[in-house]
Nucleic acid binder design. Sequence first.
DNA 1: TCTCCAAAACTGATATGTCAGATTTTGTTG
DNA 2: CAACAAAATCTGACATATCAGTTTTGGAGA
Lengths: 256, 256
Amino acid sequence: MGISITGMSDLGQQAYEKLRVGILDGELPPGSPLSHRKLAQLFGISTIPVAAALQRLEAEGFVESRARAGTRVKMPTVGEISGNYIVREALESQAARLFAQSASPLQKQRLLRLANDLDKRYRRLDKQVTPSREAQAEVEKRHVEFHLEIARATGCQELVSAIEKSRVLLFNWLFSRSGEYVPLPQGWHTRLAEDLSSGQPLSADEAMRLHVTFRRDDILRHFAELEQAAEGKIERGPQHRKVSGTFATKLQNLPR
Amino acid sequence: MGISITGMSDLGQQAYEKLRVGILDGELPPGSPLSHRKLAQLFGISTIPVAAALQRLEAEGFVESRARAGTRVKMPTVGEISGNYIVREALESQAARLFAQSASPLQKQRLLRLANDLDKRYRRLDKQVTPSREAQAEVEKRHVEFHLEIARATGCQELVSAIEKSRVLLFNWLFSRSGEYVPLPQGWHTRLAEDLSSGQPLSADEAMRLHVTFRRDDILRHFAELEQAAEGKIERGPQHRKVSGTFATKLQNLPR
DNA sequence: TCTCCAAAACTGATATGTCAGATTTTGTTG
DNA sequence: CAACAAAATCTGACATATCAGTTTTGGAGA
């Protein structure tokens, strides 16, 4: 997920990246408090670049901050997830149109290969009874790459950035759900790649829409349940989860 | 263009808004230097909230900053404008689909009224030989509102925000071009509103795509010329233009 | 044990000052 | 007058300190 453009100074940039991977890897689950001072101490820098990093993370929707009350990792609402799907559907179907319209034979071939590889990995994952979190993350990361490859082939950098933003937001929450998820149909991505390579923009558009919204309702239902569960205990302390990472614990046990 | 979510503190928020309207109104034309200190002095605040405001403006593509070298209002490239059109087409056609699918009779009626009013204003503008910049800006602002009204009717806040961002970027440059612009067809917006009210998502999608891309090629050509003209004199000092605003001049004549 | 409230602890926002890098100006030399 | 280097100036990045809200806590009283 190479977001390249820095737009921030050295220390701020480093803090931003650390926090970002911390959040996306699940080391900092939703609700985790992110104190300017504690982070500054943890990173060995002042609060200024930390504030810059957190401001950017807030603008990107990873974090929510209330003035003089605290900053914490954001728990997305069902409404936001749903809205995100709508935006993603718009952007990715547009990418599909452009791909069908102007992709070179080489690009089509490359996409087909990626799709095939991806389908193999998903099949392998479905065979396992209890796939490890790492294995799921690995495949999911390649899935994102697959979609980004379609966007990149359009040659429109703005479209790539927009898709990156709307995809990344879901990256974490998507596969953090329990286990009961509907397996993908046989050759799910291969068929999509074929549709995109057909040269028919409208068909490509429609195929991508179906692809993007495939598990949407399942996931929305899942999050609606989570939301209700969280509603019962209104903000009862930081949401402790069994997190192995050293990040969150270090933060907790920091004196100041 | 009501972007509501603050995400920034009081002073930083105020600085952000001042700079933003300064840029969008053309008072701070592309290339204008934006010094942290000078702005801080001008606003009567410290450099911290100014830096926060500029960071946000940079993330939104309004300014560009090089560490320890300077910050200035950004001149968008043809590639960026073109990419912006692609993203806008994706988002607005999606809004059109949803509108056609789920807008209430009241919302449809309201949209038709807005479209009619808008067409009248454009017609009035076309009659004038030399319409004032203010008059153009006024109509353009209502045009943006018309499109946002479609998005709002979908009930998807994320879609509204995404469209706001991709529209606002063009707001200024769009009508800053000389004068020779192709007049819109008769009942241009009214017909669009009718298509969106037809209840056919696919027709609405297609109609909106045509609408969004109508003057695209003209504008891209215009900016390509501007870009070439600017290329000749490589960064020869700040691009002085005849700007009436007090903003830029105040900044220039500030001692420190 | 429960309720309520004040003090303590914590939080983000901001001001001031300093630093090193980038740019511009200036002085010198050919 | 051109070329070049040094110095003066300007820039954004960052550290430290302080402030005013917010939340938590620890009793006091019921």
